[in-house]
Design a protein around this nucleic acid. Structure first.
Length: 500
RNA sequence: CGGGGCGUAGCGCAGCCUGGUAGCGCGUUCGGUUCGGGACCGAAAGGUCGGAGGUUCAAAUCCUCUCGCCCCGACCA
């Protein structure tokens, strides 16, 4: 019964940041590279989650007309300097290659922190007519930003992401694209990650360096802080002008293209951890779980072992034919099932797979074989199922898909409830300060006078930032009011929280 | 980059103050008994004490430098 001292996950209530690290380590998702500052090794169980994220998003991007391409890792330093705001935003965090082939380079290369510049360069070569538009590209890539402080998945020096880059003939078209992708992100977060998000627009202080406007999805973490989980930028004609991306429109006039860019990164995995995991370890929603189901055989002697393993293997094969994908999906999503036949006691196996977030466990022993049933237990108790359940094998196979999807929905509902419990509408500055004292954070809907000065003053006083100005339906939508800090007029409430 | 904490076996740590044969728990390997919520007994393997330099007869321990990790800030997906 005693918990081994070494396998301990620090309880959230005791030390939240330590809990996060413990879960990432115990779930075998990743570890700090150490030999390369600020970088991490994404281990197979963590990488498999990323692959599932990729699979679904890539399918969505294709379905919305995008194609994948790949651009160089290295970008001529001068490219970064062509867009004033962009260079100012990224200069401090660039890694620069100054030597190659044993010689100093004539012009240093920067390792891409993002690819707007080099893609802008190629867009200018590829686009000359309105007939070339829209150009809708996506790139799966690694990028590097020399951050001062790193945290596994949430902020690493090198990270994996996708970056979409599109060019359009009109601003309206570009805006449609920006919002289309924002909703792809939002729907993905909720439907696949079971992570509720607020969709909104960034303030001037928080927007992407070089964008006209940035849109984002903001997710609620269990400690009340917000995680920017995805961004979609309206680049206007800023990069078009910087890289001379011009086209002849239908009237025959030359005009600069209207561009967008958008991305999500391996940070999403950090969000997944901080949305669902508990003091026993990782919790994964079935749609992103690399392993959906583990079968733990129970036996007392060799004879039982042979019988149970044979039945367990039959069960495993049957489960592998279950397809979790929705009818409109463009790929099949067969269950990944592990039959854990290691020579360990069952209890040890239970803990092993729980720490790794496997949604469903099946215990199969001699009693079950005799009764033609299986014992099932979901990773966390929900209205779907609490504790162990004994189900006839046929019935189990017939219902396991629905059960897993119901579990997925239950996780989303649980996360929604957690977010709702941490969400407040505030109109009084003293209440505001109290809500964010110490390490505390909540999702606070507050009025703001719309100025960067006030936003900066709030941040200075409380470390709270404006996460976003909500899109219609994403906030309280209760009309105009008075700024919580200055009392000046405000058109509507914005989402305020501390952020990762 | 500023403040704080920390690098000793795969993981978690003690030892350092007061220099003198490198330890503990878990894990791993082998044998046996076990097996429906982290088993037990016996045997064994495993460490340039983050790195470099210095002081000393002698350094995990003292001094200097350096690299990295974690937390809090500033910066950010």
């Amino acid at each position: 019964m005693a918990t081994p001292a070494d396998a301990r996950i620090t309880p959230r209530a005791e030390d939240y940041p330590q809990w996060y690290q413990d879960v990432v380590r115990e779930a075998d998702l990743a570890e700090p590279a150490k030999v390369v500052k600020g970088c991490m090794v994404i281990k197979p169980h963590g990488y498999a989650i990323w692959e599932k994220i990729q699979r679904e998003l890539d399918s969505q991007f294709r379905a919305t007309g995008h194609r994948n391409a790949y651009f160089p890792l290295l970008v001529p330093q001068s490219f970064l300097q062509k867009e004033a705001e962009h260079v100012e935003g990224f200069a401090p965090e660039l890694a620069v290659v100054t030597h190659a082939g044993g010689q100093p380079l004539e012009e240093p290369y920067v390792i891409r922190p993002t690819s707007e510049t080099i893609i802008g360069h190629f867009f200018s070569k590829w686009i000359s007519s309105y007939r070339d538009l829209p150009l809708l590209l996506n790139q799966w890539a690694n990028v590097m930003r020399w951050e001062l402080r790193t945290r596994l998945f949430l902020r690493t020096t090198e990270f994996l992401w996708q970056e979409g880059h599109t060019a359009h003939a009109t601003h309206d078209e570009a805006m449609e694209e920006v919002l289309r992708i924002l909703h792809v992100y939002g729907d993905f977060a909720e439907s696949f990650m079971a992570m509720p998000v607020v969709r909104g627009r960034k303030t001037a202080l928080e927007k992407f360096a070089g964008a006209l406007e940035s849109y984002c999805i903001e997710a609620h973490m269990q400690d009340g802080k917000a995680l920017q989980a995805g961004t979609s930028h309206d680049l206007g004609q800023n990069f078009g002008k910087a890289f001379d991306v011009r086209f002849q429109n239908e009237a025959g006039d030359l005009d600069y293209v209207w561009q967008t860019s958008w991305g999500v990164s391996t940070r999403l995995i950090g969000g997944l951890v901080m949305t669902h995991a508990d003091d026993d370890g990782l919790v994964l929603p079935p749609r992103l779980a690399p392993i959906h189901c583990v079968i733990v055989p129970i036996y007392r002697n060799d004879e039982q072992k042979a019988q149970v393993l044979e039945a367990a293997e039959r069960l495993r094969k049957a489960l592998c034919d279950v397809d979790l994908s929705s009818p409109d999906a463009r790929y099949r999503d067969f269950l990944e099932v592990v039959l854990d036949d290691r020579d360990l006691r069952p209890g040890a196996k239970f803990y092993h797979w729980e720490r790794r977030g496997v949604p469903l466990r099946i215990e199969l022993g001699p009693k079950d074989l005799a009764k033609g049933q299986v014992c099932t237990k979901f990773r966390v108790d929900t209205p779907v199922q609490s504790g162990k359940a004994f189900v006839p094998t046929d019935e189990f196979l017939a219902t396991v898909r629905d059960k897993l999807l119901a579990f997925q929905d239950a996780l989303l509902e649980r996360a929604r409830a957690a977010q709702a419990a941490d969400t407040v509408v505030l109109d009084d500055w003293d209440d505001f300060v109290a809500s964010f004292s110490g390490e505390k954070s909540v999702f606070a809907w507050c009025h703001w006078d719309g100025t960067s000065e006030t936003e900066a003053a709030i941040k200075e006083a409380t470390k709270v930032t404006i996460r976003c100005i909500p899109l219609p339906g994403q906030g309280p939508d209760d009309g105009p009011g008075r700024c919580i800090r200055t009392g000046r007029p405000s058109a509507g409430r914005v989402l305020m929280a501390k952020a990762y």
